[in-house]
Each structure stands twice: as C-alpha cells, then as structure tokens.
Amino acid sequence: MSARLMQNEPAMLQRMVFEQLTPQPGGYVLDAWEGEDLRTLGVPMTYLLAERDIALAAPGSELASRLGVEPVMVPGTHEALLTHPDELAGALLKATVTPEN
C-alpha cells in the first residue's frame, strides 16, 4: 500500500511515511453525509486534488462534487503535503483569497 501513497518516491521514504500513518476508516469518505448541507454554511470551500493521487477511496472529482465544487489540481501524490509542500501551500493560500480580502 505504501507505494500507492507516494509513487515514484524512494522506497525507503515510502516505508518510513507509511509506518507513521494511523489507519482510518473509509466510511467517512464513502458514506452519504447525513448532517447539515455544508454549502449552506456560508463558508468558502475548496477541494485540492493531487494530480497523481491513486490512493483515494473514490475519485477526487466525485468527492469534490459532494461539496458542490470542482477540484483544484495540485502537483503530487496522495501525500502531496510531504512531497510538494510549497505548491500545496500556494494552492491553499490562493483558495483562501477572495475578492473581499
């Protein structure tokens, strides 16, 4: 599984990162949301999707559509925070800038 999180990264790095992870249940990603419609909260939402993420429980575009947004593509794999931190931070900052700011 470690190779699916960070493909094309050195095997030693893949193993080191994988060994630090805590397994997460997939239901919170795949099950239907039964709470309040998040789009009614008035909070800007953005879904960042790594271009080479092959470890998601469902296609990133499907997950983004649950929020009613189009995914914003960023370079990297599932662990883009580790492999492409500058690009990911830039996308996060850009997503938080609105015309009112």
Rank of each mutant, 00 (worst) to 15 (best):
Q14N: 07
L48R: 03
L13K: 12
V74W: 01
V72K: 05
D86C: 06
M12R: 13
T98Y: 13
H78R: 02
V43A: 06
D53I: 00
H84I: 01
V17T: 06
A11F: 12
W33N: 13
E100D: 15
V17Y: 01
H78E: 00
G68E: 03
L67V: 00
L88M: 12
E51K: 09
V29I: 12
M6W: 01
V43G: 05
K94Y: 11
L38Q: 10
G68D: 02
L56D: 03
L30Y: 04
L81I: 07
A50L: 04
T98F: 11
V43H: 10
L93R: 15
G26W: 07
M12S: 13
T83H: 05
L21F: 10
L38V: 08
Q14P: 00
Q14F: 02
L49E: 02
Q7F: 11
T96Q: 15
M45C: 07
D86H: 09
R52N: 15
A95C: 09
A58W: 04
E34I: 04
D86A: 13
L67P: 00
A32W: 08
E70R: 11
R39C: 05
L41Q: 13
D31N: 13
M45D: 03
A11T: 11
T83W: 03
E36Y: 09
P99E: 10
M16W: 11
S2P: 06
L21E: 08
L81C: 08
L56H: 04
L48Q: 04
M45A: 09
A11H: 13
T77S: 08
A11M: 11
L21R: 09
A32V: 07
Q20Y: 08
V74A: 06
T96N: 14
P23A: 07
T22P: 04
P44E: 06
M6K: 02
V72M: 09
L41M: 14
Y47G: 00
P59L: 04
G60I: 01
M45P: 00
E9Y: 14
P59A: 04
L38F: 03
Q7Y: 11
L63R: 00
V72C: 05
E100Q: 15
P71G: 03
